[in-house]
Write a protein that binds this DNA or RNA. Structure first.
Length: 552
RNA sequence: GCGCCAGUAGCUCAGCUGGAUAGAGCAACGGACUUCUAAUCCGUAGGUCGCAGGUUCGAAUCCUGCCUGGCGUACCA
């Protein structure tokens, strides 16, 4: 918040300099206000003089002198400025400016950090989208948390968010699922059975078969059609998936069934439209989409010679529906194994006359799971995979959410099971939550000792002079821009890092300075700041779906 | 072969889209509980930012070429 004020002042100074003929306006928009890395380099610093020097071919330190003179007249905001290094202008903010943040934060309360940059923007976040062939695996877990956190961040910045799960309950995979279930069913009944070659071997299939026996006895043993097995499996697995999602605090606005695209004729419709526009042709009995027109290396089949569409066709139809449903922004969260589908869908969307720039795809890399120092290969078909449910049982919801958010999507995420279990006491999530609990403890203690609800007083606030206090205030001031950046970049890990930083500063402060002392004015001032910290930490945890325990 | 992603401390990862002296957490070592919660803090140690060029006042960050790992490269999804 303060940074943007500084930027505004700097912009004024820059314009003023242009008006006075000190420099041309060529540098407009090229200079920045940043947070210096090291102590003693001011609260903010600007490279304006360096940028100007490059353009004007002048000595950067001389120009810095001019910039500094302009800036130092803004005494309401800036206490002093310094020229340093090759020509940076370091800006020291008046301490009162930081202190005045406290009432602003407390007054805004739960709304502090939220913004309206996304107001009026309808955005769909599509994520998970796992077909109902088994329980959610670790990889799905990452995607679920990533997608949900992104959705939450977009909500916090005023977007009108719609969470959607796209799934397919038809096709070969589901047929194999039905056959696997039938095989286990027959096995349980002691009948002869043949397990499908690439069938699903998980224990959950046996559970499903058992439930069929409970409901229908052996009445299905001579049933030639796999449909009842398939349907039972789908019902069962979907229930399982949604309960897992619910445990993580994830609720979808809609589950979109791929199959409905066929029923509504939307698949045929897309083919017809592409055909009419000349983007498809037939060859070897298959229908090809001219993806080469859109810059790809080779054309792609959208209808196989068997007459069955490939996955690309329904994907295109689905995305066209997204556009037709009037979303301004389409965010797709995919695993990196789906990377090949992205260009095809984008080409399809473009061919159908929609703007592919409205789609942002977040590709996340895989989660590698290690147990006893060895990597566990995960396969949905084989039985040896860890489900999200098991993970939740072992380490709890908050650590699972936290861990999956800790890494940026581009990075592979290593999840060491042993470590996750062993460390459950010293998990970074507890570090942040403990900070919040501590703040609550201080405020409880204050109440017991007869302090009234913290009330900001400008004079008392001047007693906040410790470097740790000013640092905390500065960090709090960047909360709104951190949320906004994290949301617009679709990068929840930034919030996690912010929270760890803020909690760290708090813990250091706590160990060094006592809030409640015999010095009543100072105690009141500090309690006010603690109250503001509590607001920030609570909001931060809330926004990414973590709980904020008052005691630990 | 081609495309995408990654390569930063012993390990796991940040690094604000080009800034000043490279950051955190684990792990290691040494300290701090008569105190608002020690699930905490303080200190020490740890680096050729994969390699080599290039762009400029300035590069972990941008461009090129290699090397290594992951994921793709289907008439599977």
């Amino acid at each position: 918040m303060i940074r943007s004020e500084v930027k505004k002042v700097l912009d004024d100074c820059f314009a003023h300099g242009v008006a006075e003929g000190l420099w041309s306006d060529e540098a407009a928009g090229k200079f920045t206000v940043e947070l210096p890395k090291h102590e003693g380099q001011g609260d903010f610093s600007t490279n304006l003089a360096l940028v100007l020097a490059g353009i004007e071919k002048k000595n950067p330190r001389q120009i810095a002198q001019l910039v500094a003179e302009q800036l130092s007249s803004h005494t309401d905001l800036i206490a002093r400025v310094e020229i340093a290094g090759p020509g940076f202008v370091n800006i020291f903010i008046d301490h009162d400016v930081w202190r005045r943040l406290i009432p602003k934060i407390i007054d805004r309360g739960a709304a502090f950090g939220k913004s309206s940059v996304g107001a009026g923007r309808k955005v769909m976040v599509e994520f998970v989208s796992a077909n109902p062939t088994g329980p959610l695996s670790i990889g799905h877990g990452r995607q679920a948390i990533l997608g949900d956190s992104i959705a939450r961040l977009l909500e916090a910045t005023g977007h009108d968010v719609f969470r959607e799960y796209y799934y397919n309950d038809a096709g070969r995979q589901m047929r194999v699922l039905g056959e696997s279930t039938r095989a286990r069913y027959l096995e349980l009944l002691g009948e002869k059975f043949t397990f499908p070659e690439d069938g699903y071997q998980g224990e959950y299939i046996v559970d499903i078969s058992r439930s069929l026996i409970d409901e229908q006895g052996d009445g299905l043993k001579d049933h030639a059609d796999v449909t009842p097995f398939k349907e039972q499996a789908e019902r069962y697995i979907f229930k399982d998936i949604s309960s897992t999602l619910e445990r993580m605090g994830i609720v979808f606005d809609n589950y979109y069934n791929e199959h409905s695209l066929y029923e509504n004729g939307l698949i045929d419709d897309v083919v017809a439209e592409l055909k009419a526009k000349g983007y498809v042709y037939e060859q070897d009995n298959a229908v090809w989409f001219k993806t080469t027109v859109f810059g790809q290396e080779q054309d792609r089949v959208i209808i196989k010679s068997s007459g069955e569409p490939t996955y690309r066709l329904p994907d295109m139809a689905y995305h066209r529906e997204k556009f037709r449903r009037n979303f301004d922004w389409l965010v797709n969260i995919f695993g990196s194994d789906h990377i090949a589908t992205v260009p095809d869908v984008l080409a399809g969307v473009k061919a159908l006359g929609y703007d592919p720039d409205k789609i942002t795809v977040v590709l996340h890399q895989f989660v590698t799971l290690t147990r006893d120092g060895k990597q566990v290969k995960m396969s949905t078909r084989k039985a040896n995979f860890i489900t999200v449910d098991e993970l939740l049982d072992e380490v709890g919801v908050d650590p699972v959410r936290f861990f999956f958010m800790m890494r940026k999507a581009d990075s592979q995420l290593e999840f060491d099971l042993e470590l996750a279990k062993k460390q459950s006491q010293e998990n970074p999530v507890y570090y942040v939550q403990y900070g919040y609990a501590r703040l609550c403890a201080i405020l409880r203690q204050a109440t017991e000792k007869g302090f009234a609800e913290p009330q900001y007083d400008a004079d008392e606030a001047r007693l906040l002079t410790e470097p740790e206090e000013l640092k905390l205030l500065q960090t709090m001031s960047t909360f709104p821009s951190t949320i906004e950046g994290s949301a617009l970049e679709l990068a929840p890990h930034k919030i996690i890092f912010y929270l760890m930083e803020l909690a760290g500063q708090l813990h250091s402060y706590y160990n060094k300075h006592k809030v409640i002392t015999d010095d009543l004015p100072l105690s009141r001032a500090r309690l006010c700041m603690i109250k503001a910290l509590q607001v920030v930490l609570k909001n931060g945890l809330d926004i990414v779906g973590l709980s904020a325990p008052q005691r630990m």
